[in-house]
Computed example of a mutant assay.
Amino acid sequence: MDAWGLFTALAGPVVGSFVGLVSIRLPAGAAWIWGRSRCASCERSLRVIDLAPLLSYAISQGRCRSCGASIPWRYPVIEAGCLAIGVVSALGQSGPAALATALLGWWLLLIALLDAEHFWLPDLLTIPLGLAGLALTIGALGQPPLPQVIGAIVGYGALALIAKVYEAVRGREGLGGGDPRLLGAIGAWVGWEALPSVLIWACAAGLSLVAAKLIARRRFDPAAALPFGVFLAIGAWLTWWTGPLHRLYAP
């Protein structure tokens, strides 16, 4: 593991703390860049010892040091998830690619959380994700620009067209407005050739969820909305790692 990988792995929990904060504050319309973190129960401003990723939760045994209120488990889980993304990226890549890989994973995790909990894919996150993809893949990783630019255009256009056709045929919205922009952003990272793989992985993830609910004998409404952004995020991460499926299984 080189210096890039070490930094990426160590940054994981810190980024996870930020991701957990943004996933709560952004949907609430609260300031998520500036402002002190406070206990949701007693409003006490949190100190450095309260904000150490993973460590503070373990030391306090999951409770506020002032009022004893339970700290939501989602915070250490997100921090651990970002740590895992950082470590996996550091072990699987070297140099700037390790940090770029982790950045994509962290960003997709935040987007997936917002879509899973609020059915919301804000432009504030999806559009900068695409711009970052173009900048990093072309500038830092030396990818040719044309496949990435075409990927962004085709990714957005394909889902936007499907959404329009579905709405015209069924008379109701089938895809949220953020889904095409998310796929466009993903296309800027993986390039146009990999977009079918992203969609295949995404559909497989969605069908797996439906199958799991049926196996668990939970009531499933076929007309119920599913957070497709979550599945696109999974598809993007898997495609980034494995590459396009047609290359993976080429003779």
Rank of each mutant, 00 (worst) to 15 (best):
K164P: 05
F231M: 08
G184P: 04
A202I: 00
L183A: 06
L207P: 15
G178K: 06
G177Q: 04
A205K: 12
L195S: 01
A158C: 13
L159G: 05
I200Y: 02
L226P: 15
I215V: 15
V230H: 02
A158T: 13
L182E: 09
I162G: 04
E173R: 10
L161Q: 05
G171M: 03
A211K: 01
G191A: 02
P180D: 15
L182S: 11
W189L: 05
A224P: 01
L207F: 12
L199Y: 08
R172W: 05
V165E: 13
G229R: 00
G184F: 01
G178C: 06
L199F: 08
A163P: 08
G184A: 07
R217F: 00
L207D: 11
L183V: 02
V230Q: 07
G184H: 06
I162T: 04
L183Y: 09
I215R: 10
F220N: 14
E167N: 07
V230E: 04
A216S: 15
S197V: 03
V230I: 12
A194K: 08
F228Y: 14
V169S: 09
D179S: 09
A225V: 11
V190T: 09
P222V: 04
E173S: 11
L214D: 04
A158N: 04
G177D: 07
I162H: 01
G229L: 00
A202Q: 04
L175A: 12
R218P: 00
V198I: 11
F231C: 10
L195I: 06
F220G: 05
V230K: 00
A224I: 01
S197A: 09
L209N: 13
L161H: 05
V165D: 08
F228C: 02
L209E: 14
A194G: 07
R170N: 13
A216W: 02
G184W: 02
R219L: 09
P227D: 00
G187M: 11
L175T: 10
A223V: 00
R181N: 10
A204G: 07
G184S: 07
G177N: 12
F231H: 09
A225K: 05
W201G: 09
R172V: 06
G206S: 02
L175I: 05
S197W: 04
G178W: 08
A158I: 14
A160M: 04
V198N: 01
R219W: 11
I186T: 06
V165N: 10
V210F: 13
I162F: 14
A204N: 00
A194M: 09
A194D: 09
R170Q: 10
A188H: 06
G229A: 03
A202L: 02
V230D: 10
L199C: 14
L199Q: 12
R181F: 00
L161R: 03
V190A: 12
R170W: 02
G171K: 09
L209A: 14
G176E: 15
E167Q: 14
G177V: 00
G184D: 07
L161M: 14
R172A: 11
A188C: 12
G177C: 01
Y156G: 09
G176N: 13
A205L: 08
V210L: 15
A204T: 06
A160T: 03
L214Q: 13
L175M: 14
D179R: 01
A160C: 06
W201D: 07
E167F: 01
R218A: 06
L161C: 11
G191L: 00
A225W: 11
A188K: 05
L195M: 04
A185D: 09
L207A: 15
A202C: 06
